[in-house]
Design a protein around this nucleic acid. Sequence first.
DNA 1: GAGGCGTGGGT
DNA 2: TACCCAAGCCT
Length: 345
Amino acid sequence: MMFSEKLINWYLQNKRDLPWRETRDPYRIWLSEIILQQTRVNQGMPYYERFTERFPTIGDLAKAEESEVMKLWQGLGYYSRARNLHATAKTVTQTHKEIFPQSYDEIIKLKGIGQYTAAAIASFAFEEKVGVVDGNVFRVLSRYFGIYDDISVPATRKIFQELANDLVQNVSPSLFNQAIMDFGALQCVPKNPDCSICNLSDSCHAFRTGTVNELPVKTKKIKVTDRFFNYLVLEDLNGNTIVEQRIGKGIWQNLYQFPLIETEEYLSMDEIILLVSQKFPSLFSEITDVTKGEIVHKLSHQRLYIKFWKVKLNTVFERGITQEQLKEYAFPIVIWNFITSHYEK
DNA sequence: GAGGCGTGGGT
DNA sequence: TACCCAAGCCT
C-alpha cells in the first residue's frame, strides 16, 4: 500500500468527530480554521460554538461591531485573527456579494488567510487538489519520508508543499488533508509517539532509523523578554473606574486595560505612591497592592511581571464606568481574570 | 526572511 | 523550572 492509502485507512479507524467536519459551508470551515491557527481543538471548540451561534452566516458577522467580535474572541489569543476575521467577513459580504471565494488563488487574497488556511478551505469545502502544510504535516512527512531540512527556515516549506501536493493528487483532497492532520495530532505526536501501534511504522523512515525524536529538524528558538506592568485600578467617589484601549503596534492591539505605568524594573510601594500622587495631584487618597506580589504572565515571547494597584481618588470621573459596564469590554486574559476575581467580592 | 504576536497543556 | 508545542499570518 502507498502512504496515502495507509494514512486514510488509519483515519477511517481513528478520526475525531468535529462539528466543522459535518459541513461544506466555506464560512464555517473558514471560521474553524482561523480559530484553530496555533490553537488546540479543545481550546478552540467553545469559541467555534459561540461564534456560529451568534453569527450563523458571514453576513451576520460582517454586520457586527468590531468590539463585539473582540469580546467573543477574548481569551483565545493572537487577536489579529479576530480583527482580520471581521475585515474578511466585510470583504466577502460587500465585494463578493456574500459568496465565499471558491478557489485557492482567490481565497488566499483574503486578510488573515495564508497558504495553510487557503489550502484547507479549498480542499475541505471545494475538493481542490492542494495539500495542507501545517505543524502536523511537517512532522508526519519529515518522519515518514526522512526529510531533514530545517523547518524553522521559511524556504523549507516549498519542499513539503510540493510533496503534499503530489500526495493529494490521486485521493480525495479533503479526506487526505484531514487524515494527515489527525494522524499528526493523535498518533504521530511530537514527543515519544507510540510507534508500536502505528500501521505506518513498517514503511516509516524515522521508525526504521530510530530518528523519530530527531524529526522534524527545527533549530531556531524564541527569545523571551521581560516587562514590568503596573496597572492602576482607579476608583472615584462613586466607585467607578477607568479603562483605556491599547492602540498601535505590540501586544493586545485594540483590547482594553487599566491605565498602565510600565517600568524597567520592579517598583517598590514607595515609588508607586510617589508616581501616582504626582500623576493625580490633590486627588490622591489611598493606594493598595491588590495583587499581593506580582503576577507573572507568560506570552510566547514576553514575560510580563504585573501588579494591580487599587487607587482611590477624591473626585468623580467624567467618563467613569461601573463594574457592570467594565465587563462588556474585551480584555487580555490576565486582566480579565483579575476583574472577575476582584469585583466578585 | 526574521521576528512579533496569546494562551494553555504536556513533559 | 523552563521549554516545547498547537489546524499560522503579517510585516
